[in-house]
Write a protein that binds this DNA or RNA. Structure first.
Length: 287
DNA sequence: CGTCTTTGACCGGCGC
DNA sequence: GCGCCGGTCAAAGACG
């Protein structure tokens, strides 16, 4: 029992999302999410994940009702909270390593062995990247299949955190999903690692081949990354997310790739067209 | 019947 | 050294 909502929710919980990791701090004022993503730094971080963006894409995150905030990555710790620049900050560091304290800068081993140790062997932490998404649903479909392997109540938050692992046996990507204690409408998704496969699929049902998924479009732009697609259905507002899907070496052709659905257009809503125009949502759906 | 979720227990890191 | 807490395991149950 300590899990689940029984969790002691600390009413006074601050907006700080001190993700247990101790390194991920999201001091974000979810209520008015803004965007931060200061170009260079962020870009470099993303690059570490194998994501590529075009420089010309300005930070466009943060919409009225939906927002996508790359909370950050980690490996290097080089990322500092862009927050500094804005109101919303997100900072992160590799969660596990206290590297930050040690100053991190440029050099950073992609994999930092850290705290976690699993029965004898050291656990290697993968780079992480978190997003804040305004959504009513906890789990956003992002094109990959995930298996939930745990749920825990987190301190300072009335909402439990869910742990998911990519169902691909060879893929070690994990993701954590939790709601902001300050703004329950904000879902914080943290990805750890990179997918090493191209399979895109949906639970119990169709599996979308990578080819098909990519058939549509692959424009290495930030739009793919943020894909803050918000579809408004009736009164609901949804946001979808995209995620890093493959290691650089695997990106066929070396190009950046994201999961894009060929017929993504079907998911695109006119409502946001103006703002999201080219941000076609990858094969993601709200579950 | 296979897959996925739920959930209590366990493990290890960290702060005090 | 101890307790807290995040992260993970794994058995059992639910679901399609």
């Amino acid at each position: 029992m300590e899990d689940k909502d029984g969790a002691p929710s600390d009413p006074s919980a601050t907006a700080d999302f001190a993700a247990d990791d101790s390194n991920w701090t999201l001091a974000a004022d979810a209520s008015d999410a803004a965007c931060f993503f200061s170009a260079d730094r962020e870009r470099s971080i993303l690059r570490e994940f194998g994501w590529n963006f075009q420089p010309d894409r300005p930070n466009r995150i943060g919409t009225d009702d939906g927002l996508w905030i790359p909370v950050q990555s980690s490996l290097t710790g080089s990322l500092e909270p862009a927050a500094a620049a804005n109101n919303h900050s997100v900072s992160s560091s590799s969660s596990e390593d206290p590297p930050e304290k040690s100053t991190v800068s440029d050099e950073k081993p992609p994999e930092i062995p850290c705290k976690g140790k699993k029965k004898g062997q050291k656990r290697i932490r993968q780079p992480r990247f978190a997003f804040m998404t305004k959504s009513e649903v906890d789990h956003l479909e992002d094109g990959y299949r995930w298996r939930k392997y745990g749920q825990k109540a987190v301190k300072n938050s009335p909402f439990p955190r869910s742990y998911y692992r990519c169902t691909n046996s060879k893929c070690t990507v994990k993701k954590r999903v939790e709601r902001s204690s300050e703004d329950p409408t904000i879902v914080i998704t943290t990805y750890e690692g990179q997918h090493c496969h191209h399979t895109v699929g949906f639970p119990r049902g169709g599996i979308i081949s990578h080819e098909a998924a990519f058939a549509g479009q692959l424009a290495p732009t930030m739009s793919q990354f943020y894909c803050p697609i918000q579809s408004r259905i009736e009164n609901s507002t949804f946001s979808s997310i995209s995620q890093p899907c493959q290691p650089q070496d695997e990106a066929a052709g070396g190009g950046p790739s994201a999961i894009m659905q060929a017929d993504a257009s079907s998911q695109q809503h006119p409502t946001d067209e103006g703002l999201l125009g080219d941000m076609v949502p990858p094969g993601m759906r709200i579950r």
